[in-house]
Design a protein around this nucleic acid. Structure first.
Length: 613
DNA sequence: CGCGTTTGACCGGCGC
DNA sequence: GCGCCGGTCAAACGCG
């Protein structure tokens, strides 16, 4: 954890010219996000830079008195003060440099590990596609996944290798092959954006195939990149051809994000075009329908509606997966929603009663809301009554959809967690104690309804106080009231005191990762998100970290790769910093993430558009 | 004039 | 079969 903090500080040190650091949102343009993060880092951690700046402030504050009619003695004392300041400054510099050296070494290690992970993923993906090809050669004329016809709504499961009810008992004696398959599936989730082709997973259970959403993973059979909305699919089916290639009854995963936001829409970095508006029953607020216009054939749609109970809550429901590279600023939301959708479906897979003993996230999610990094996942699926529940009853879910709700509307000033949140924490903390402590918040830039993003300095995107754009942006932050977070703060203040729990945490996480494919996919997604952030943020693709492409396995899906994999960098960031090497040399945040500034190069068109909505 | 939004009409699914 | 409802379409409209 403190490693991440150090790294962030170091990175900022490296990236920013000195003297700029004191500005808080003075320039909320290109580097607004970075500034926000940096500021937060500096607020919380006793970083040398912060001290330097404070020292500078002291010194500069002393200057006016010096220029005035000052006596000699006072001048001397002032000079002494200067000397002492200089001395302490040098000490600070030395310690900082030493720290930087350590961090660099650590970064190198992390890079190495990262590269190894990438390599592993690639090799596994290669194996995976070999398997796919072999199977396709075996049964080229067999009916494709359509048989998935989920007549029984409960039959929502992924071919993650955890599906068969009889398999779990054998998990402990898994062969290497099965482990490989599992890993492959994890990478599949990463690369295919949680879409699993029926015959591709190597498991041959009927009904275990579920394509998450629009099936542009099969561009060869369909119009490339143009998945069909359900109605059109049905229309098409009625026309009588290509039934085989369609998956009309496959559930789509929808990710609903509840966030407090005064702005008409949340800025998720994507370009959206409104194509309809409807007043839905039960909610006086109209529901707006948006299409992604980044690519003409992008199937992603979103619905935006205000919560009837609390008009300050904006409910944004995403559906589909982008079939194009995303703007950097959009990868966060895409990653998050993808990961959430992935977890939704993988959770359904893991919901089998024979789930392993380890309380993996997906397993927990089957019985309660999952709070991953403070993300309050509540799964709704008409198909699985009793397993998930819809957190927001005003958002009715279509039977053909499974919806996962990310509730980011935690009361900003409350000292107690919502019941579902703590409920999850109690379950999940055994696995990843820190995960539940990372707030994942959307903050509205204009409204000050969410003080958390400002007060928590862990990763608070979107709190640009000087930003005038009334758009909510994606933010990640911690709940200040969270005790775990407080402990983290303490650690950050005392970075040289590693706690024994860190190792055990890493072990636990490792166990969780290795035991749960979905969780692994999310972790891998984090890597993707990070890498994408870095690649875009620095304008380079250094270290070959186009993870979405590297990790995405399916050539047909290559267009969906960047930042679009089943990624949840923000879901797993905290974990990544504590246990996984993926951060490597990565600069921390995604630049201009959800920054609705008109100066923002990457997000401004979107923002402007969304502003007008 | 082009682009995006608005808004009424239309369509299909679903329940009764 | 009918009506309700959610979702989409597309012409009209507004804006820069």
């Amino acid at each position: 954890m403190e490693v991440a903090l150090k790294r962030a500080v170091v990175v900022e040190e490296e990236r920013r010219p000195k003297g700029v650091g004191d500005e808080e949102g003075g320039e909320t343009g290109k580097f607004g996000t970075e500034t926000a993060i940096k500021d937060q880092d500096f607020q919380k951690s006793p970083s040398p830079n912060a001290k330097d700046s404070s020292i500078n402030k002291e010194a500069s504050a002393a200057n006016p008195s010096e220029s005035s009619s000052m006596h000699t003695s006072s001048k001397r004392s002032c000079l002494n003060l200067r000397d002492s300041i200089t001395m302490s400054k040098e000490d600070q510099l030395k310690s900082t440099k030493a720290e930087m050296g350590e961090v660099r070494e650590e970064n190198e290690k992390l890079k190495t590990t990262l590269a190894r992970i990438v390599k592993d993923y690639q090799s596994l993906q290669m194996q995976f596609f070999d398997i796919i090809q072999q199977e396709q050669e075996k049964k080229p004329t067999e009916t494709p996944p359509v048989p998935i016809e989920v007549e029984e709504p409960e039959l929502v499961s992924l071919s993650l290798g955890t599906s068969s009810s009889g398999h779990k008992k054998e998990e402990k004696v898994k062969t290497n092959k099965s482990k490989e398959n599992e890993q492959i599936e994890g990478s599949l989730a990463l690369g295919l954006d949680c879409k699993f082709k029926g015959s591709s997973t190597g498991t041959k259970e009927p009904g275990s195939n579920l394509s998450l959403e629009d099936s542009f993973e099969e561009p060869k059979e369909e119009e490339p990149g143009e998945p069909w909305p359900p109605s059109k699919v049905l229309k098409h089916l009625r026309n009588g051809d290509e039934e085989v290639s369609q998956q009309p009854h496959v559930k789509k995963a929808r990710v609903s994000v509840r966030a407090r936001c005064d702005a008409p829409t949340m800025n998720d970095g994507c370009q959206w075009r409104k194509y309809g508006q409807k007043v839905a029953k039960g909610n006086p607020c109209p529901r707006a329908y948006y299409r992604c216009t980044v690519a003409p054939a992008c199937p992603v749609r979103k619905q935006v509606q205000r919560c009837a109970e609390d008009m300050s809550i904006l409910i944004t429901t995403y559906e589909g997966t982008h079939n194009h590279p995303l703007p950097i600023s959009a990868t966060a939301m895409a990653s998050t929603t993808s990961a959430a959708a992935c977890m939704l479906l993988s959770g359904s897979s893991a919901s089998r009663p024979t789930i392993g003993s380890l309380a993996t996230p997906s397993a927990v999610m089957t019985t309660s809301n999952a709070n991953l990094h403070g993300l309050n996942f509540s799964l709704s699926g008409n198909s699985r009554p009793g397993q998930f529940y819809l957190q927001n009853p005003s958002m009715s879910s279509n039977p053909s959809y499974s919806t996962i709700t990310l509730d980011l509307t935690a009361p900003p000033s409350s000292t107690s967690q919502p019941s579902h949140l703590s409920m999850f924490s109690s379950n999940f903390a055994t696995c990843t104690p820190r995960h539940s402590s990372t707030g994942f918040s959307f903050s509205c830039l204009e409204s000050h309804a969410i003080p958390t993003s400002r007060s928590n300095n862990y990763l608070g995107y979107g709190s640009q106080p000087y930003n005038k754009s009334p758009i909510c942006s994606l933010g990640l932050g911690r709940q200040p009231q969270d005790p775990l977070y407080q402990s983290y703060l303490n650690k950050a203040a005392n970075p040289s005191a590693p706690t024994p729990s860190q190792n055990s945490l890493a072990d636990t996480i490792a166990k969780a990762i290795t035991s749960d494919p979905s969780f692994r996919s999310v972790v891998a997604a984090a890597i993707t998100s990070y890498a994408g952030a870095q690649a875009g943020g620095k304008g380079t693709q250094g270290h070959g970290l186009i993870w979405g492409e590297q990790l995405s396995s399916a050539p047909p899906c290559s267009s969906t790769a960047t930042g679009n994999g089943c990624a949840s960098g923000y879901l797993t960031r905290s974990m990544a910093s504590s246990s996984s090497p993926q951060q490597g040399n990565l600069t921390f945040p995604q630049p201009s993430l959800g920054l609705p500034t008109s100066k923002s190069a990457s997000a401004s068109p979107v923002d402007n558009r969304e502003n007008t909505n």
